[in-house]
Design a protein around this nucleic acid. Structure first.
Length: 553
RNA sequence: GGCUCUAUGGUCAAGUGGUUAAGACUCCGCCCUCUCACGGCGGCUACCCGGGUUCGAAUCCCGGUAGAGUCACCA
């Protein structure tokens, strides 16, 4: 078989050589510790928390080493393509602080290693496929779907591994004349890798390969034996082939991808070997898991777990800084420790390492996110919180006039957001935008409703308590004077001035001062629980306070 | 079924032959306290199982078990 002649027959339209591309995309000339990483989403328009998780690793690795981080669109499957998906990907990632140095952007490609969209790179893949054919390392395969299904059936009966390899790879043995004939008949064909890992060689053990993974250490895997498709009938490459060619030509140093790629790693290693190229450092990240109904862990899936799409966090109004902080804590187990030691440290000063990444699947923990979010939001100024809330409301509550109305008075809302935050032991009331707005709704007359009942202990005295409270109310009282007055009202009406007295002697009192103040709280806030009433009154203003109280007389 | 990965409390996790087996979140109790939150203190709960190696195993080896992933002209 004259492989060169076969290569010309299959790829007569390819005039460039691998040499041409090697020169066009030279070594990047970066310092040797600099890492070049990439994100290669397929443009389905779906952004998953898992995507962010991986993107974060890519981004940290590149930007903490003085390297490059680029975006490549992996659209080799036209069935998956969704209009506008690229913009969604870029914008979503940017929102969470992931920015690319190179690759596809809304304004076109940036960088010298493009084109960065795989569907535009057909000639390149075909050139390298041609090279493989010319060296006898790949071949055209004319098997039909039916034939492949038939082979699979036989393999199942014989309990042999499924797939096209060794003796099952019938097209391997085609002569030049047969191939020429089939092509002249217009029969469709794919190009397959001619794998060296042929299982059917008698008396041989399956060879093993050792691959270094930056997260998992040394991987011991069986060598690939499958004649994997590298070029589909359309001339478009499969993921495997595009990955190898692109990451070589784009000089990627670190490939970060999910652990679901582990089983096909031997294919990629064999391809790199066939080309005589150095493979990148692989970083196979753990899958994000979820507890299903039966209590089993399972991989997150975008179809079944919509709440784990990135949009969920945007909708709920989680702050990007909180999501970043959360992601880092599940990404690097020593981050939490670092954060405790450096409560005000810049997140960029934490040195991210692949070695500290977990290789078992982490369960997504919403409680933990909320807890982290409380601390993160505490560090954000009221002014910035206002901007964040407003931007969120404009995106997700644009038609909700009641919500929109809270932004009319910036100074007022900022005061509301700052309640109890400046003390030594600050309140941590804020978690995410939706929750915050519900939490502070009573500050705004068109959101205010009485949601909770009066406390039982004081239910019969509501009018009396509020009446006396209004009589004695002076908006200029300081906090201690204000509370002394409430104590006086409580005692006068037969309530204990201190809750402890009431607990010791429940029969001696109707209730305690807490019940009396709760009456005022329900009248003013519509709820039994809230931050300090005096502080709230100062923000509400005397007029609004009196109006709300009067409704209970 | 083959191959691969994983296995420490409810969750996330330190731990790499000798530890009272860290820490965080959740939950519970107490304290602080006019409610809630915050904060403080305390508590519950863990090395998947069985063999080996060793004076000694969560840690090393072997064998199970369980969970997950993957076996496409999808990525």
């Amino acid at each position: 078989m004259d492989h060169k002649k076969l290569a010309e027959l299959l790829f007569s339209h390819i005039d460039k050589t691998p040499q041409y591309y090697e020169e066009k995309y030279p070594d990047r000339g970066l310092p040797k510790e600099a890492k070049v990483t990439r994100l290669g989403p397929s443009p389905t328009g779906f952004i998953h928390l898992g995507n962010l998780y991986g993107a974060f690793v890519d981004e940290r690795l590149a930007h903490q080493s003085g390297g490059r981080f680029f975006l490549r669109i992996e659209d080799t499957d036209d069935k998956r393509l969704v209009e506008g998906a690229v913009d969604i990907i870029i914008n979503s990632l940017r929102f969470f602080g992931i920015n690319f140095d190179e690759g596809v952007t809304a304004e076109g490609d940036i960088g010298a290693y493009g084109d960065y969209t795989q569907s535009h790179r057909g000639e390149i893949y075909q050139c390298f496929a041609k090279e493989l054919v010319a060296q006898g390392k790949a071949y055209p395969c004319f098997m039909t779907e039916e034939e492949i299904a038939e082979i699979r059936k036989q393999q199942e009966e014989l309990k042999e591994n499924p797939g096209i390899y060794g003796k099952w790879a019938k097209s391997r043995e085609l002569s030049m004349e047969e191939i020429e004939k089939k092509i002249s008949e217009g029969l469709p064909y794919v190009v397959r890798l001619k794998s060296d890992g042929d299982l059917t060689k008698p008396g041989e053990e399956i060879r093993r390969i050792a691959v270094e993974d930056a997260i998992r250490g040394t991987l011991d895997m069986p060598e690939n034996d499958q004649d994997t498709v590298i070029l589909k009938a359309t001339g478009i490459p499969t993921y495997h082939f595009a990955h190898v060619v692109d990451d070589h030509l784009m000089r990627t140093t670190h490939v970060v991808r999910g652990a679901e790629w582990l089983p096909s790693l031997p294919i990629h290693i064999e391809l790199f070997e066939k080309f005589g190229w150095e493979p990148p450092v692989y970083c196979h990240t753990a899958q994000l898991m979820k507890l299903d109904e039966e209590g089993n862990k399972r991989k997150l899936s975008k179809r079944e777990d919509p709440e784990l799409s990135l949009d969920y966090y945007r909708n709920e109004g989680y702050h990007p800084a909180a999501v970043r902080e959360y992601l880092l804590t599940i990404l690097n187990s020593n981050f939490e420790e670092w954060r405790i030691e450096n409560p005000d440290g810049d997140i960029d000063d934490f040195r991210f390492t692949t070695e500290k990444m977990s290789n078992s699947g982490a369960l997504f923990d919403l409680n933990k996110l909320k807890d982290i979010s409380k601390d993160v939001l505490l560090k954000i100024s009221a002014s910035d919180l206002y901007d964040f809330l407003k931007a969120w409301a404009e995106e997700f509550k644009a038609r909700d006039e009641k919500v929109q109305s809270i932004f009319k008075d910036r100074a007022y809302l900022e005061k509301v957001l700052d309640i109890g935050r400046s003390e030594a032991k600050p309140r941590k009331d804020h978690i995410y935008a939706l929750q915050m707005i519900e939490n502070i709704s009573y500050f705004f007359d068109n959101l205010f409703t009485v949601e909770e009942a009066m406390p039982e202990e004081a239910a019969s005295d509501v009018k009396t308590i509020i009446g006396k409270y209004m009589e004695s109310y002076d908006h200029c009282d300081d906090q201690s004077l204000w509370f002394d007055k409430i104590r006086a009202i409580a005692e006068e009406l037969g309530y204990a001035a201190k809750p402890k007295d009431y607990k010791k002697n429940p029969e001696a009192y109707k209730g305690h001062v807490g019940h009396v103040s709760t009456v005022i709280r329900v009248a003013l806030m519509g709820r039994q629980q809230s931050p300090d009433v005096w502080e709230i009154q100062q923000i509400l203003g005397e007029e609004r306070v009196r109006q709300r109280l009067e409704k209970f007389l």
